[in-house]
Design a protein around this nucleic acid. Structure first.
Lengths: 339, 339
DNA sequence: GTGAAAGCGCTAACAT
DNA sequence: ATGTTAGCGCTTTCAC
């Protein structure tokens, strides 16, 4: 584990450090061809590798950004992160991903850790709880973009989807197919997207003059969802359709469905918010509300890099539309199966 | 985006930089209580955040390690990475993950990029193609651990599973359940684990006096697997059971199964190498060969951190046993379904 | 075209 | 118990 520094290369090549530096930064405009060759040789001979840490210290720029996802278990986080990374690589930047695990304390820790490591900016799927910290970054004009969740009272560029409208469309689709007893399953309504999704659900029912039944509206910790489902199907009137507000709650629904040998879509039509991996290859297929992860990630990265490059960007909300990916076999042509 | 440096804190607190440095490194053994308090106040007042880049330059240690996965699409990579990260965090280190995408050129690029960023060590799921580079790191005594794949001719600590034995066990299980026509599906046999898995398959058949049929042995690029399956079921004698060598080939098998409305396990018993997310909640359930991802990741991280801390570690091969997770409904009690 | 020198923000002897 | 000093490896004026 030897250490070859620029000084060693300079000495070996018989030039000065600054010339080597020029070479490394490909500024060979004013550089003799033979000097250039000497340096190339010296680098190769010594196996020299530049130290980006030292460079960053001087340049005040690491060419790294941080991504803090609220919860890596949500498939959508990974998809968006991948898109961000791709965009970064195209611009010679690197992204480092951290998982806040839905914990504001961890979120704060990661924000501080990444900033201490001098990342050039941050893309955050905010827990929403560290308002003071968000505000401080806003005020310092530190480059930040929020994704997935809107935070009130903070003026930071944000990329989200049209949660409410997308669920509205999905529920309307079910209604159009004859369903009137439609359940919704969601983790606790602590964060913005889930609240929006429930709004869309309620609005759709309302607009079609279907009363909202509290019993069909399950909002509980993931580990308790199955219990609530048990209670729901014990009712005299069972739902014929169900909307899961995200992948995690959907997995619980699947466990339940499997246990009770419920058939999709005959016994129960199912729609999920989120791309479920293999939704299309599983039997039965599952209708999904797909978020445009790639576009969102790309947009977020683009907004961040603009800020990093000191372009003036006024913070606004970018809302992307979801797509209802209808796989008819999962929704059924009618609600008769269960009556 | 102001910049508050240690000097500012020192001035504000009326002490010297070194005292502030001591404070930050929690070496307050020999520090007056009121000095300590003055510094705390100054830091808070100025909103000072230490610059880890500068610290790293001096200390020659970044408290970061790199993970280079061969292909992030393999679920196992993610699982092992998570375990590595957990272990790192317990030891106040951070891990940054890169995806070589099965491309030796990208692998090389990432190795160089991460080393230029001065990561303290590397955990690599090697493509196996950059032998010279591996050897160079070995020779420089740069801390490296390989995971998942053994590389011949390079003396680097490696963590793998007992691929051959695990498949042997799985195939024997099928045979015990009456199957004799057992197919194997795998991506191209370019890398170590796949070759081992096929060896286990062949060995099991041999030991049970079942002739190996070339037609039942599909080894093809993922996108061509479905075509090969089509050809296979067009044969007069179809297999009654199938082993998929990894998750990616399994997904292809699932597409095929769905298209032809093949029932598991009645028409075809299926076993997959790799934990398939939701194998247990999907209908039908799938029997899997589970790799001990957590243990592997932990072991790899442990081996690496030992090297980072300059403990002498002799490079050896650590082989972890897999578990055959039998979900009977997916394997069937007999092979009669298809005859 | 190339070199000398002054830092970037921090740590770690060594003084005091 | 606190301050002084000399770098870490690189970039970047500014001379020559």
């Amino acid at each position: 584990m030897k250490k070859v520094t620029m000084a060693d290369v300079a000495k070996e090549a018989g030039v000065s450090k600054s010339t080597v530096s020029q070479y490394l930064n490909k500024r060979y405009e004013h550089m003799g061809d033979e000097t250039r060759e000497k340096i190339r040789l010296a680098i190769e001979k010594l196996g020299y590798r530049p130290n980006y840490i030292a460079r960053s210290l001087k340049q005040k720029r690491t060419a790294m950004i941080g991504i803090i996802v609220a919860n890596i278990m949500h498939g959508i986080s990974t998809e968006i992160s991948r898109a961000i990374e791709d965009f970064c690589h195209e611009h010679d930047m690197h992204a480092i991903v951290c998982n806040a695990d839905d914990d504001p304390v961890k979120e704060r820790k990661y924000i501080e850790m990444l900033r201490a490591r001098q990342v050039d900016g941050l893309i955050i799927f905010p827990t929403g709880e560290n308002i003071e910290l968000y505000k401080q970054m806003e005020q310092e004009r530190y480059p930040v973009v929020f994704v997935d969740r809107k935070v009130t009272d903070v003026n930071i560029s944000t990329v989200v989807v049209n949660n409410k409208e997308a669920v509205y469309e999905a529920v309307s689709h079910l209604i159009k197919n004859g369903h009137r007893d439609i359940a919704m399953v969601t983790p606790p309504l602590t964060i913005y997207p889930r609240m929006e999704r429930v709004k869309g659900y309620k609005q759709a029912l309302e607009d079609h003059n279907i009363p909202i039944k509290q019993a069909f509206m399950i909002s509980a910790e993931v580990k308790n969802i199955v219990n609530h489902l048990e209670a729901m199907v014990a009712l005299p009137k069972k739902p014929t359709a169900l909307v899961a507000a995200n992948d995690l709650s959907f997995f619980e629904v699947m466990k339940f469905i499997k246990k009770h040998r419920i058939l999709i879509p005959n016994d129960l039509a199912v729609i999920v918010f989120d791309n479920i991996p293999f939704a299309s290859i599983a039997s039965p297929t599952i209708t999904t509300i797909a978020q445009p992860a790639y576009d969102m990630g790309k947009k977020a990265a683009e907004l961040l890099l603009k800020q990093v490059n000191e372009e003036r960007v006024d913070s606004k909300l970018y809302t992307f539309p979801c797509t209802l990916v209808i796989r008819e076999s999962s929704v059924g042509g009618s609600a008769k199966g269960n009556q």
